[in-house]
Simulated assay, not measured.
Amino acid sequence: MLRLGIPVIGVVDMPRAVAFWSAALNLAPTTEWASDGWCTLNVADNSARALGLQLSESPVEAHPRVHLDLFVDSPEEQAAEVERLLGLGATRIEWDSYPENPDFVVLADPDGNPFCVVDLSRSPST
């Protein structure tokens, strides 16, 4: 039976990526499938896989078709998390596709991979 696995991020510096994503999302590296070119990050209590990191030589895409959205519940939490992530090594990137009054902030991880911090309190209702 086919089932969804985990999102995988291509990185050029594995130790730096492990440190950033572990601290950013309270994840823990595991030895499962570990190699020089792969690291699985699990939920901190080791209850589930959360993210894969894979060495990659391909360039970062400026506007990737697939990216991570990290959720928060208020503008204050969004601002605090953006600052925390910047302190961990994320960077603000110029994003030319912001809508008017966006509910998200676009950052890049230390490898330059874009991701969003989304304030769910400001997201459109469905």
Rank of each mutant, 00 (worst) to 15 (best):
D103P: 01
A79S: 11
L86P: 10
E94P: 02
G52F: 12
D109T: 13
E83Q: 08
Q78F: 09
R65G: 08
E61P: 06
V82Q: 05
L86C: 12
G89K: 04
A50Y: 03
A108L: 08
L53P: 09
V105Q: 14
S74L: 03
D73N: 15
E83V: 00
S56M: 14
L85I: 06
L53I: 14
E94F: 07
P64D: 13
V60Q: 10
E83C: 00
L107G: 01
H63E: 15
E83L: 00
S56T: 15
F71P: 01
S56K: 10
L53S: 11
V66G: 12
E83S: 02
E100L: 05
L70M: 11
A80V: 01
Q78W: 01
L70V: 15
L107K: 02
E57L: 02
E76T: 09
P75N: 03
Y98S: 13
L88F: 11
A79H: 05
V60Y: 11
E76F: 00
G52L: 12
D73R: 14
L55S: 07
D103G: 06
P59R: 12
F71Y: 11
H63G: 12
E94W: 03
P110W: 08
A108R: 06
L86H: 11
W95R: 08
E57C: 00
I93S: 04
P59Q: 13
F71T: 01
A108P: 06
G89C: 02
L88A: 06
L53F: 14
P64V: 12
S56Q: 14
L85C: 05
D109P: 08
E61D: 10
P75C: 06
L53Q: 13
P99M: 06
R84S: 09
S97Q: 11
N101M: 07
E61R: 14
R65M: 02
L70Y: 11
